[in-house]
């Protein structure tokens, strides 16, 4: 994700005006935000589908029976991961390389915990059972359980896919940072990674209440 490419010997003969770092950075930012904006349609379509299809003539808006505690914990974990990502970005901006690398690692660990919370515990792909202080640890919905399950897996699956790509992105940036690829003046890769990760958080800001809180809890249908 290096924004500025050093022209190779071959490239140095290429025609065209040279683009300054400032202009390239602005273009990179605009490009990333436009990409994010295009993704809004994808996530919004799933969100709208949730409200249209999870509707009962008698009960009004409904939602699947999910563990409220598990939903809250995963949400808080993702919130903290966003905080540490911001801390890592600020550390790079002010030349604190150690805090930058540690911040990225903490973000990756928290992101992995969120991913485990959704895929292993909520999806329960291993078919586990268990309780902790009376709190159900593993979900019971299956993809073939009906409309509610279908939408639930589509929403959480699309989000989890972005979490996974975000984690890969973070590890790539961490490795680049370890090898000294970024400086306080030039660290577009770090900035882009942070924007992407916060975007994943913003999507969950709307998905969390839509999946776990809004409507009357019903069995899958």
């Amino acid at each position: 994700m290096g924004a500025v490419t050093t022209p190779s010997h071959h490239d140095s003969h290429a025609h065209g005006p040279e683009i300054s770092w400032e202009v390239q950075l602005k273009s990179n930012r605009l490009g990333l935000w436009l990409f994010m904006f295009s993704e809004v349609f994808l996530f919004a379509a799933l969100l709208v589908a949730r409200f249209v299809l999870w509707y009962d003539a008698d009960l009004g808006i409904v939602r699947p029976e999910l563990s409220q505690e598990l939903g809250l914990v995963t949400t808080v974990i993702l919130l903290f991961s966003s905080f540490f990502m911001n801390r890592a970005e600020m550390a790079m901006e002010y030349g604190d390389r150690k805090r930058f690398l540690n911040g990225l690692l903490v973000t990756a660990v928290l992101g992995t915990l969120f991913f485990i919370g959704v895929v292993v515990m909520e999806w329960n792909i291993l078919g586990l059972q268990g309780e902790l202080f009376g709190i159900e640890l593993f979900g019971h919905l299956k993809p073939a359980d009906g409309v509610i399950s279908g939408i639930f897996f589509a929403m959480t699956g699309m989000h989890a896919l972005h979490v996974l790509t975000g984690l890969i992105f973070i590890m790539v940036v961490w490795n680049n940072g370890r090898n000294g690829h970024y400086s306080p003046e030039k660290h577009w890769g770090v900035e882009a990674c942070a924007i992407y990760w916060h975007y994943v958080d913003v999507v969950w800001v709307f998905y969390y209440p839509a999946l776990y809180l809004i409507g009357t809890a019903v069995h899958a249908m």
């Binding site: 966003s82 911001n86 924007i195 916060h198 913003v202």
Partner: peptide
Amino acid sequence: VIVQNFMHIARL
């Protein structure tokens, strides 16, 4: 709040 403080949209 996230878009403003964490994603720094104003940098655009």
